[in-house]
């Protein structure tokens, strides 16, 4: 791929903290290598700002290889940018044209309050995980793996759900700020496996209750979440969650869950 440089204009959301209201600020970035990643470009911006004795732009990042779920950013209205199946850290400047104006906003949603600039507080996801996104394990020697047969199809499907990195793009893109794609992936990856089955009903009830308590919206089945998801999590898992929750509610109504 040919190496080159481009100039872009950035429109960046700046917000001191959750209490104060934010605004956009414009920055001109010249001679940006098309081989640099989007986050490297923001690193350059921050170096420039520090040189000018200004506040650097706060943004979340960690592994920078698309697996930790820490990076966020809504780029030109799309969480993680326009490229499908990519996180922001995997987005490179070659995806932009010389002279482009790039609008960078945080992942917006009521349960994702802004901490500063582009960094948002996603601990609401952690609390959903704590409410049931786990299996209870006995300590001691692990049993023989082959003693617990799991069909290939089931294992694959559970792995597809487990691919969720919990970044929150689904919430950010959803017109209802619904967390059902995240919650369903985290719930059904365990519900469909034998290890998760003993706590299935309890998990289904508790995770939905926590999701509601955090103030996330309700799914209207429009599918933007799945389209924006860097891991391509399918809406099938939302249907599975709906089914598991309905069964759990009926069982709990009759005192059987």
């Amino acid at each position: 791929m040919s190496e080159g440089t481009i100039s872009v204009k950035l429109k960046v959301w700046r917000q001191k903290n959750g209490q104060e209201s934010g605004h956009f600020e414009d920055y001109q970035m010249d001679d940006v290598s098309t081989s640099s990643s989007f986050l490297e470009m923001l690193d350059l911006l921050n170096e420039k700002l520090i040189d000018e004795d200004k506040d650097p732009v706060a943004f979340d990042h960690d592994c920078r290889e698309g697996i930790c779920g820490m990076c966020s950013l809504t780029i030109n209205g799309i969480p993680h940018g326009k490229n499908a199946l990519q996180t922001t850290c995997q987005l490179h400047m070659r995806s932009f044209q010389d002279g482009d104006t790039i609008t960078i906003e945080p992942f917006r949603a009521h349960p994702f309050p802004v901490i500063r600039d582009l960094a948002v507080d996603r601990t609401s996801f952690e609390r959903i995980m704590q409410s049931g996104g786990y299996v209870t394990q006995r300590i001691g020697a692990a049993q023989d793996a082959n003693a617990l047969p799991i069909g290939k199809e089931v294992a694959d499907r559970a792995m597809d759900a487990a691919a969720c990195i919990g970044c929150g793009a689904c919430v950010a893109v959803c017109p209802n700020a619904s967390a059902m794609l995240f919650t369903s992936a985290k719930m059904t990856q365990l519900n469909m496996l034998p290890q998760g089955r003993p706590e299935k009903d309890r998990r289904s009830l508790n995770m939905v209750a926590q999701m509601d308590a955090e103030g996330f919206g309700n799914c209207t089945n429009i599918g933007e979440c799945s389209a924006a998801c860097p891991k391509g999590i399918s809406m099938d898992f939302i249907a599975m969650m709906n089914r598991d929750y309905a069964v759990a509610r009926v069982k709990s109504f009759f005192g059987a869950a």
Binding site: K11, T74, K82, A109, P175, A177, E224
Partner: peptide, 16 residues
Amino acid sequence: RARGGENYAAKAKLQA
């Protein structure tokens, strides 16, 4: 309420 007070300045439609 869940969407919050601040709207996106840039809006894009993916496939809805």
